[in-house]
Design a protein around this nucleic acid. Structure first.
Length: 137
DNA sequence: GCCAACGTTGGC
DNA sequence: GCCAACGTTGGC
């Protein structure tokens, strides 16, 4: 099983919005970046991810699960853009901020820390463990 | 609100 | 196929 990180501006779509969708989850649509799309194509049902609030908060706030593999993005007329479906699994006991991640040696190579613009990213097993530790879970 | 970093587009 | 111009993202 693989780990990922999904970014969203909470103004547009927040953690609470995903939680409100319950078990039905929601399409992770609107991604128009090839790298991000390719990561979504690599995802399997059951993979877990971090839900990160960009701009406001700048912190990982919850854990999500992939519930449907990549399919055409319903918000795009062009079928080349695909997305997965996600549901909220649980909130982190304590959100992990970008600042905390920057200060953690185990996370120095994390994509979040080094490439702030990629909206869907892979997370290594070690990084996943380090984030959950910082989150107090 | 500014600007640096990055990705994409389009002229040559 | 290169690269300048432009648009977008996201931290500050």
């Amino acid at each position: 099983m693989a780990f990922w990180l999904f970014k969203s501006e909470p103004d547009v779509f927040s953690w609470d919005d995903l939680v409100a969708k319950g078990e039905t989850g929601e399409e992770w649509n609107g991604v128009r970046n090839y790298q991000a799309r390719n990561f979504m194509r690599a995802m399997k049902v059951g993979d877990l991810g971090l839900f990160y609030h960009s701009n406001i908060g700048k912190e990982a706030v919850g854990i999500v699960q992939v519930i449907a593999e990549a399919h055409p993005d319903s918000t795009s007329a062009d079928p080349k853009w695909e997305c997965v479906d996600l549901k909220a699994v649980e909130s982190l006991p304590r959100p992990v901020t970008l600042e905390q991640a920057r200060g953690e040696p185990a996370l120095k190579d994390m994509v979040l820390v080094n490439n702030s613009r990629l909206s869907v990213q892979p997370v290594t097993d070690a990084e996943w463990a380090a984030i959950l530790k910082l989150a107090g879970s």
